[in-house]
Design a protein around this nucleic acid. Structure first.
Lengths: 339, 339
DNA sequence: GGTTAGCACTCTCAGGGCGAGAGTGCTAAC
DNA sequence: GTTAGCACTCTCGCCCTGAGAGTGCTAACC
């Protein structure tokens, strides 16, 4: 434990440094906080604090900076037990009342509020539970030899998977299978599914095994998705030496509507479109170039493959790669929608 | 149209500048490409190119840099019609054979391959189709007064939504409603749903309206999600003046397993955990701090709310905000799982 | 013994000066 | 139309310097 005075000094160093991002010196500390002692005394104490590893000096003749250990001590013993002002709480809560009622979007909102509130990166993960269980199953006809398995898990999570079938079936059969499995597998977790998979045969067995794989992946936390916000806030902090151009890129990326900003509709049927710098309709994109291509069948569903970079770009290579990947994805999709 | 020689010079300027990120000068251009003419000639031509707006000078006595118009001309007329080497194509294709068979993940893979291949940001959107149609509907019992609507759209997209019901129902009823709606609404698009919503009453009407809202949102492209990769690649380019610390942050973020890296299991039931700098088990996180809290009921599903930033952080504020938001999310979740 | 004034010392940082280097445009001759 | 030559401009890296900030030590003081 630190003596009371040393602790007080450490507290001041931490809070000043957090605020200014500048190493804090003994002289400054007395001046800013009107301490009753002289800077020499502070210096003596600081020397001790440094010996014990709570603070460190970037170089001689610089002020002190808290070490990890210093921060830890601060968090553990020195930090005022802060709580948000009532007003701020109300402001935050308010935003949740206005939003949609989709839980998923609430999480995104939480991340966004958090990031803006503390000017750092905020992460909010989707909920998950160790022992995933099947709540409901549905199988949808796609083609004669493929079907979409939709599984609702106990914690209101929906997982889907395309299955390739060994023999042709119709929706009627699929619905019946789903109905039987719903009775048999309600509330089943991984071990129960293993058991059931041994017992069941044919289509039912195949579906059960797919369910098992879904549940196992869930248990392994493989698909835990996190909403991330505030990268721009963080990179704007002085320790990252932010450059003008970098921040303007971050602005473009933080824009939630980036995918919508892609001029997909204007794409030629085949081939690659290039938008360079000031040709962009959006102000923010004026420093960047975009190389993009559509994928998917001409009259069917489709999306786009794109590259975003500075106007200084290897256009030839970019175009060739975008084109090739859009072809690959188109191929994959044809296989999925089958024929 | 540019004269042949001027076009050739523009091409050299573009390709040299793309490679080096340095303004290119007349002397250098003749030396590097062993031109038959002198630098003075090049200078004359360059002066013309600048007059016509194809290139520009950052300042007197700097070399020339292509303008947006210059790049455009390059892309339109000067660019060699590049195609990827067969070997490279094979390398790319190979990765698609190894991966899972989930279309969604293929798109992520495409983005990742693209980003690494051209060292820029890659975007790949999920497929979408202008006139969304309902393919299959399922309704899952959650609580007496809430149900989960799962809709499969024509283009194999699954959308879910929690519905609050006006009167208590059981799974039996829900299944019947779903079955009737599946017959009535197969292949329905937005206008058809509007029509049906008018005709149908009670629970069926409510579900149809929810479906309508889902389809409308889909048509508006509101949920077009894009896989984004390669932010780090791009920020490492010289025009962004990348700093050491920034790149190390990007490394942490590009790590796909970031959510898994959060030590959720070790979280206390209530309260907030703080991990500072070198306390992290992961090498890469050593320069950063993490403030995190669990949300969700103690024995039910849950996730985590976290802040990631440099060790220089307003811990007090961060802790208070994380705590408050985890409480809010916990509350929302309780309402969802109801009681 | 703790505190402090005084002081010599160290190191960074911003600014100025300077020369090298790169690049330009112009002119006159080929 | 091309080019050698030249004067000119501007950046950039380097060095130097002085100011400023900060430190540790010592000796005196309470």
């Amino acid at each position: 434990m630190l003596s009371e005075r040393r602790a007080a000094i450490l507290r001041l160093i931490v809070s000043d440094y957090v605020e200014s991002a500048q190493p804090v010196g003994s002289e400054n500390i007395v001046r800013r906080h009107q301490l009753e002692v002289s800077s020499a005394t502070i210096r003596n104490e600081m020397a001790r604090l440094e010996e014990e590893g709570f603070i460190l000096q970037p170089h001689t003749s610089a002020g002190r900076v808290p070490s990890d250990r210093g921060y830890r001590y601060f968090v553990e013993y020195l930090m005022p037990d802060e709580d948000l002002a009532l007003q701020e709480k109300r402001r935050i809560l308010h935003q949740f009342y206005q939003a949609t009622s989709e839980f998923h979007e609430w999480l995104g909102l939480a991340a966004s509020v958090l990031a803006r509130s503390v000017r750092n990166i905020a992460l909010v993960t989707e909920p998950s539970e160790p022992g995933a269980r099947v709540k409901h199953v549905q199988i949808v006809f796609l083609t004669e030899t493929s079907a979409l398995l939709v599984a609702v898990l106990q914690d209101v999570k929906v997982r889907e998977r395309v299955m390739t079938l060994t023999e042709p079936v119709d929706q009627e059969t699929l619905t019946q299978v789903a109905s039987r499995l719903n009775d048999a597998l309600r509330g089943a977790d991984a071990p129960a599914l293993v058991h059931a998979a041994h017992r069941l045969e044919g289509l039912e067995g195949q579906v059960t095994e797919t369910l098992l794989r879904i549940v196992e992946e869930e248990d392994a936390g493989q698909h835990v998705h996190a909403h991330m916000e505030g990268v721009r806030e963080l990179l704007a902090q002085p320790e990252f030496h932010p450059s003008e151009k970098m921040l303007s890129l971050m602005d473009v990326l933080d824009e939630r509507r980036l995918p919508q900003a892609l001029p997909i509709r204007e794409l030629p049927e085949h081939g690659v479109a290039v938008v360079i710098g000031r040709e962009h309709s959006q102000e923010r994109m004026r420093e960047f170039s975009l190389v993009l291509a559509r994928y998917g069948a001409a009259d069917g569903p489709g999306g786009c493959v794109a590259i975003l970079g500075p106007t200084r770009m290897q256009y030839g290579r970019a175009i060739a790669t975008v084109r090739y990947l859009s072809e690959i994805v188109t191929g994959l999709m044809e296989r999925l929608y089958a024929s």
